[in-house]
């Protein structure tokens, strides 16, 4: 009977269970029906098994999204957990699809599953990567626009982890503002 250390036996549990979604427009379906739930996981091992298995964001067809949200939260404004919140928005230029997009997206996923925002992690709902011809976008969605401290802390950690230069600012927009404005031209409630 050789004793195997528990480290080898037990998968490493995550604080939260997360669900990966894939969005692809299909004209005979409603927008909501085009959001397909791929898989949920709650261990480090299962995250990598899923992540290593799927296409990187940079190779998705233009118009597609990946989203990863806490289980029970749909990747849409209307969801009960999202409707009072907003998102930190990172806009990438066309060249950055090849150089930054996959790195940024992976770092955002690791920040979320690792609870890297400490107590502010409770404000995080999930993140979305939009692959678009006019420039890809990554959004980190939080639950309540009134939680200034948490939102700003999340923005700072995000900027630091993605090595976004100090002089480049990223903005936080309330979903309520984004809904009425077309696209991401909504005003920024916060910037870092």
């Amino acid at each position: 009977q050789t004793d195997v250390s528990p480290e080898m036996l037990i998968k490493h549990p995550l604080q939260n269970t997360w669900t990966l979604w894939f969005f692809k427009i299909e004209n005979n379906r409603t927008w909501e029906d085009c959001q397909m739930e791929i898989a949920s996981f709650n261990t480090v091992e299962d995250f990598w098994a899923l992540y290593n298995h799927i296409e990187p964001a940079s190779r998705l067809k233009v118009g597609c999204d990946y989203s990863m949200f806490k289980q029970g939260i749909k990747p849409m404004w209307e969801d009960e957990h999202n409707c009072r919140g907003g998102r930190w928005l990172i806009n990438l230029n066309k060249q950055q699809r090849a150089t930054e997009l996959d790195n940024f997206w992976m770092e955002v996923l690791l920040l979320m599953i690792g609870e890297a925002f400490a107590e502010h992690s409770d404000e995080v709902c999930g993140s979305v990567v939009n692959v678009r011809s006019k420039g890809d976008k990554i959004g980190v969605w939080t639950a309540d626009v009134k939680k200034n401290d948490s939102i700003l802390r999340i923005g700072h950690v995000l900027k630091e982890r993605l090595n976004i230069p100090r002089l480049v600012t990223i903005g936080f927009q309330a979903h309520k503002d984004t809904m009425v404005k077309s696209g991401s031209t909504a005003k920024n409630r916060f910037t870092v």
């Binding site: 490493h12 549990p13 604080q15 480090v44 990598w48 690791l110 690792g114 609870e115 107590e119 982890r161």
Partner: peptide, 18 residues
């Protein structure tokens, strides 16, 4: 309560473990 936090380096080490 307690929170399960994983550093980036640990998560990256786990990427290719069996």
């Amino acid at each position: 309560g307690t929170r399960i936090i994983y550093e980036r380096t640990f998560l990256m080490q786990m990427r290719n473990s069996p």
